[in-house]
Amino acid sequence: MELSIDRLTKHYGHKIAVDRVSATLGPGVYGLLGANGAGKTTLMRMLCAILEPTSGEVRLDGKDVVGMGPAYRDVLGYLPQDFGYYPSYTAAEFLSYIAALKGIPREAAGKRVKELLGMLDLTAVADKKIKTFSGGMKQRVGIAQALLNNPQVLILDEPTSGLDPKERVRLRNLLSEYAGDKIVILSTHIVSDVEAIADVVFVMNKGQFLVHGTVQELAEQVRGRVWELTVPREQARLWQEDFTVANYRHEGERVVLRIISDEKPSDGAVPCEPILDDAYLYYFGAKEA
């Protein structure tokens, strides 16, 4: 299975939301990283064929996804960024309703709903109205509906927003386990989520893929540009004004700064092992990110 994105572009008037984006995705987990307004949601909506591109196209195994219509939607699972639900429905009813819309036979739908409620730790609240749920619980219902049809292409827009740390870990594990021979694309601006599960990460800025690669490859790109420097507390602010500081840690009366910089910021700075966060900050800068 192969999902290819060919010079995908979306203009809103004079504003370019997505600018000639191309990529070929095989089975695996793909993370889409970018600041707010980078074009992630627009791109994901075009991947789902619910937003018409200004130019370019998306193909699944060589077939245009728009032309495929229901055949594409049959293998697609999507969690929108602003996940809408019916407040008066219970979690089980809502999932059954979406299952019917996805054309899943009643009996199979019943089993799948039960299974997903269990997987997402929603069994205890299955018969409670969604409007009474916390943000994290609603988000889990949204993830469950995306997984209902066991999709070959799973697109999740900000799936971890609203989830507490425990839920985020559970979701990461679930997605890693689910991926297998499927294509999973998730967008987020929480770097650690992508770092934990994505096989390939696309960093997006101003509608374009700025850089992409595995977590290790991206981290490697900033090797030699990540430094640790210990300074007196009163000087910390001055360093923050002049450099991109990835981390700020107190050690007694002194502060340990993790600085992203092409040049060695100070004689006292020591190079350190880069992580994806460093790469993200390197491309966006602390303020933009």
């Binding site: 229901p70 939607r73 999507y78 996940f83 639900y85 996805k102 054309g103």
Partner: peptide
């Protein structure tokens, strides 16, 4: 009401989609 509930993107991506609904 579907626009009010923000369910449109979700419904659009289901197999039966908009028309059958």
């Amino acid at each position: 009401g579907e626009w009010h509930d923000s369910t449109a993107p979700l419904l659009h991506t289901t197999k039966y989609g908009w028309k059958k609904l």
